[in-house]
């Protein structure tokens, strides 16, 4: 961990130090920071908003449509645990009217970014109003690395931040998004409410479909091994038991005992479902696969969407993809 903290500090130092030097890197950064489809058409009148990572970006876009001009800080297939803001992004944050974050310690770097970017708008924490799960993990706090690296790693370990894995929580997120957009852009309020309502119906259908997909599978059989502990909310909502090779953060170092425990569990409980994720190093899972003769059953999307054209370019597609991969692997199809 020491190395990570040190490295982070170095990188962070460079990131912040150069935040004032914005123009040069802007062109390069634009390719990485995905602007929504709205950016080109309605750039002049649209409400400038920033979402911390790709999943929230999709949700905000669903509600805001082309009345918002969206910037995502952390793009597809990228890990929020290790984000470093670029100067151009700091500038975009400074110009935004709204900044959407997940909260629950997921974006430990956010307060500092808002402050240094001189952000004057409204910071909206989307997980407000949900019932967060406590972190159980292996005692590795979320934000282990970046928390310390940024010098404000106090309460990060308390709650599991991955609440979007439960569709019911995302329906709360969507309500929060609509409320915030209405407050910032009263003229478009009807528009936002309408879109939020339509999207809520999609989410309700998604929730029902996930339950239907799991229904035929014996609850005792619903056990899955994943790389990092990002699926507790999914597990709670849909009755699946997830066991993680690393702790709740992709950062924490695995222990020999933890891996041995998983290997025994796979053998004794005849677990068949072993998954890699889009944001974590697959090697540990592959090692467990070799040990137990299991082949990783595919890739789950945990903390980031896939790039457009991938398996999970939107939130709804992400949950459908994960559910299909999980139910197939567990049922042994």
């Amino acid at each position: 961990m020491k190395r990570r903290i040190f490295g982070q500090r170095l990188l962070v130092g460079l990131g912040w130090g150069s935040a004032a030097w914005a123009t040069g890197a802007a062109a390069a950064a634009a390719s990485g920071a995905t602007a929504g489809p709205a950016a080109a058409t309605a750039a002049s009148t649209a409400l400038p908003v920033v979402a911390s990572f790709s999943i929230l970006g999709d949700l905000v876009q669903q509600v805001g449509g082309d009345r918002v001009q969206m910037t995502q800080l952390i793009g597809p297939d990228s890990d929020a645990h290790v984000f470093q803001p670029r100067p151009a992004q700091a500038r975009q944050v400074g110009q935004a009217r709204l900044v959407f974050s997940n909260g629950l310690g997921f974006e430990g770097w956010m307060p500092r970014l808002l402050q240094s970017a001189n952000f004057r708008g409204q910071h909206v924490v989307l997980s407000r109003g949900i019932e967060p799960l406590r972190n159980h993990g292996h005692g590795h706090g979320h934000g282990h690395g970046h928390g310390h690296g940024h010098g404000h790693g106090h309460a990060h370990g308390e709650h599991d931040p991955h609440a979007w894995q439960n569709v019911a929580h995302v329906r709360v997120y969507v309500r929060n998004i609509a409320d915030a957009l209405c407050a910032a852009d009263a003229a478009g309020c009807d528009f936002y409410r309408q879109r939020a309502q339509a999207y809520d119906a999609v989410l309700a259908q998604l929730d029902a479909d996930i339950r239907a997909a799991w229904a035929p599978i014996d609850p005792g059989q619903r056990r899955v091994i994943v790389a990092h502990d990002a699926f507790a909310y999914y597990g709670q909502a849909y009755g699946v038991r997830f066991m993680a090779a690393r702790g709740v953060s992709a950062d924490s170092e695995p222990t020999a005992r933890g891996i041995a425990r998983l290997v025994r569990q796979i053998r004794e409980e005849r677990i068949r479902a072993l998954f890699v994720e889009n944001v974590t190093d697959p090697r540990l899972i592959e090692q467990i696969g070799r040990e137990t003769g299991l082949r990783p059953a595919g890739r789950l999307y945990s903390d980031a969407l896939s790039a457009p054209g991938g398996a999970a370019p939107t939130y709804v597609e992400m949950l459908r993809h994960n559910t299909q991969a999980l139910t197939r692997a567990v049922a042994g199809v």
């Binding site: 170095l10 990188l11 793009g75 990228s78 890990d79 090692q287 070799r290």
Partner: peptide, 28 residues
């Protein structure tokens, strides 16, 4: 400095160091 520049300009944010600098428990 060059490495930081390359990663933060062109890289995706998957943790490069973590991927490269593995753990002894995951030697393939």
């Amino acid at each position: 400095a060059l490495g930081v520049l390359i990663i933060s300009t062109y890289g995706s944010q998957v943790d490069l160091l973590h991927v490269l600098f593995g753990t002894v428990l995951a030697l393939d």
